[in-house]
Nucleic acid binder design. Structure first.
Length: 572
RNA sequence: GCGCCCGUAGCUCAGCGGAUAGAGCAGGGGACUUCUAAUCCCAAGGCCGCAGGUUCGAAUCCUGCCGGGCGCACCA
């Protein structure tokens, strides 16, 4: 069903025979035929034969008759393959009959830990958390759909010195008042108030420092107040996740504090392994290959000079638990690019300690910043960071207004539902549609545009497929014959068959913009098909075939968008 | 100083060893007695930052520059 793989499987033995060793035929879509294989060119030097001759020898041996209408050598030595219409139709029909759209559940499932979102307790979620949350959730959805055991970890910032100040402020306010403030989502106000008191009032500073000591010493009352802060914040974060359509739940919170009682063992074991050195009073690991400002080896500070633990220790403890107790073989860290070196060092030390060894591997899925229209880091008018809820609320409001304008017949409820799906979808899609590692510019006009590579365009294409299916009345069985005559039908068929390839590729690379690009291409192909190939006005076999193509396109768009965490609506 | 990321159409981005570098937007031209025009079609638009190198072949790999961003010991 996966055409690219099918052709690869057919060409590989032929290439291998000709070359006398294993060769990847390098099959890809071609502007000059349906597919092309480029491997003969690369082989020419090794075999000392002209590439065209090699290509011909491969074609002489390869079994392609049942799939290809034409297979020929072209140019300097490309192999051009044209798929037989009947074979193509057969594959599309098989695809339509498959609930999983040609993407089987993986044969070797693994345990994958996805560490993402990670907001800080008693601090507002801002656009910086948007990317981690959206990308991480897409990873969770995709890997889960493929049958892997996915463990979501929301590595909350719930520990450290700021909590002394926050708890002291909470006491000043009174618990009820503080809880009220936090539950309505005024986290920044709470944090700022604590901060400014800390900066201005020496007596408050003393109380704050005492609270840090009490908290770390396990004082029950301080712990209770701390829990209160954490719980109120979690409640608030969950409302944001719900609005964002993210699958994170309360069960996924595993804050930094969860590793407290393991930090001692981490340091102790690293020491026993001879990996630690005292340096300027701090206990450090010096993984090879990392140098700092003056060319000196760069330390990973596992325990600070004052005896406290920093986040390297926490990250090591978390990693060890994930590969050890959770048995994970793939660790994904969806954290901004600036942390790249930190994670490289953590992974290196974990490798040295034997906590991270094949088949287990860790990947830092770094990402760039969200920029404003001026090309600089997105800021609010006041110059502070933009509250994530504000951003989401504005997206929904804009999309709802847009829906009303475009389709005045919608009632309030429908407009609201569409506004939500489109607004949130637009934000998430804009985030996922470009290369993760790059910064991107948040531009309302562009991401809510009704054409172009945007969520609304894809959602509209989906709504059109549903509209056609609804109007058809009769449901077309999956056993309907597919007939492909028009070029637009063929083009759509090829795109539909490419879903599995993209899904597998993205599962490997976590480059979600590849999936987004695929879905946009699919929607584009469908729109062209829709324009040129009447479905409901066609008769008999052709009508049934086109209905099935329409339905299959809709299912693929819905599934693809769902994997990205984006909703579809039945009408727009 | 060292390290990482990024310089591709006016704008936002794909492409990251293969044939004539692709989309979308904006701008130009066309298609609504509609299966939802929130759409489609056509034309136009490029020293792929610069300079070397490797290769049969380079936007893609290597080296050096230039420009932008971000990191580089006790905040997470």
């Amino acid at each position: 069903m996966d055409l690219e793989r099918l052709l690869t499987d057919r060409l590989t033995p032929a290439f291998t025979a000709v070359a006398g060793g294993p060769v990847d035929p390098v099959v890809r879509r071609s502007p000059r035929a349906d597919f092309q294989s480029d491997a003969a060119l690369a082989l020419a030097r090794r075999l000392g034969r002209p590439p065209r001759e090699i290509a011909q020898a491969v074609l002489d041996r390869a079994v392609l008759d049942d799939v290809c209408a034409a297979a020929e050598v072209s140019g300097p030595g490309f192999v051009n393959l044209t798929i037989d219409d009947g074979a193509l139709a057969g594959m599309v029909a098989a695809l339509a009959a498959d609930d999983r759209l040609g993407v089987p559940v993986t044969a070797d499932p693994e345990t994958v830990v996805v560490d993402y979102s990670g907001p800080n307790v008693a601090k507002e979620m801002h656009v910086g958390h948007l990317r981690s949350t959206v990308i991480g959730d897409a990873a969770v959805r995709l890997l889960g759909w493929l049958g892997h055991r996915v463990v979501r970890v929301n590595h909350l910032g719930d520990w450290g010195t700021p909590f002394g100040m926050l708890i002291a402020h909470l006491v000043d306010l009174g618990e009820a008042e503080a809880a009220q403030e936090l539950s309505i989502g005024d986290l920044d106000g709470f944090y700022r108030a604590a901060r400014s008191k800390f900066d201005a009032d020496p007596a408050f500073q003393v109380r704050a420092r005492q609270r840090v000591v009490a908290l770390q010493g396990g004082d029950p009352e301080t712990r209770r107040l701390w829990r209160l802060l954490v719980e109120q914040s979690q409640r608030y974060f969950l409302t944001v996740y719900r609005l964002l359509d993210v699958t994170l739940t309360e069960d996924d919170f595993r804050g930094e504090s969860a590793y407290n009682d393991r930090l001692g063992a981490v340091v102790g074991d690293l020491d026993r392994l001879g990996l630690l050195t005292d340096s300027a009073g701090a206990t450090c690991a010096f993984p090879p290959g990392f140098t700092g400002r003056d060319g000196a080896p760069l330390p990973l500070i596992v325990r600070k000079g004052d005896g406290g633990y920093g986040y390297p220790a926490t990250d090591l403890a978390a990693l060890r638990l994930r590969t050890g107790e959770l048995g994970a073989t793939r660790l994904l860290y969806v954290v901004g690019l600036p942390q790249r070196q930190h994670f490289a060092m953590v992974f290196a030390v974990a490798g040295q300690a034997g906590w991270l060894r094949p088949p287990a591997r860790a990947e830092h899925l770094g990402f760039g910043s969200v920029l404003g229209p001026d090309g600089r880091m997105l800021r609010s008018r006041a110059g502070g960071s933009v509250k994530l809820v504000d951003l989401l609320t504005e997206a929904v409001a804009r999309a709802t207004a847009l829906a009303r304008t475009k389709n005045p017949a919608l009632d309030e409820a429908d407009a609201a539902e569409i506004g939500r799906a489109v607004g949130i979808g637009a934000i998430k899609y804009a985030d996922l549609a470009t290369d993760r590692t790059r910064d991107y510019v948040l531009d309302w006009e562009r991401m809510l545009a009704l054409d172009g590579n945007t969520a609304p365009y894809l959602q509209y294409a989906y709504a059109r497929t549903r509209s056609v299916s609804r109007r058809a009345g009769t449901k077309v069985g999956p056993d309907a014959r597919i007939v492909l005559t028009a070029p637009a039908e063929r083009a759509l068929a090829f795109e539909l068959l490419g879903f599995a390839t993209v899904v597998h590729e993205v599962a490997r690379t976590a480059e979600f913009h590849q999936l987004a690009g695929y879905l946009h291409r699919l929607a584009t192909r469908f729109s062209a098909f829709y324009e040129r190939c009447p479905v409901l006005r066609a008769d008999g076999e052709l009508r049934a075939s086109r209905l099935l193509l329409t339905d299959l396109t809709g299912r693929t768009l819905r599934q693809g968008l769902h994997l990205l965490g984006i909703r579809t609506v039945e009408r727009m």
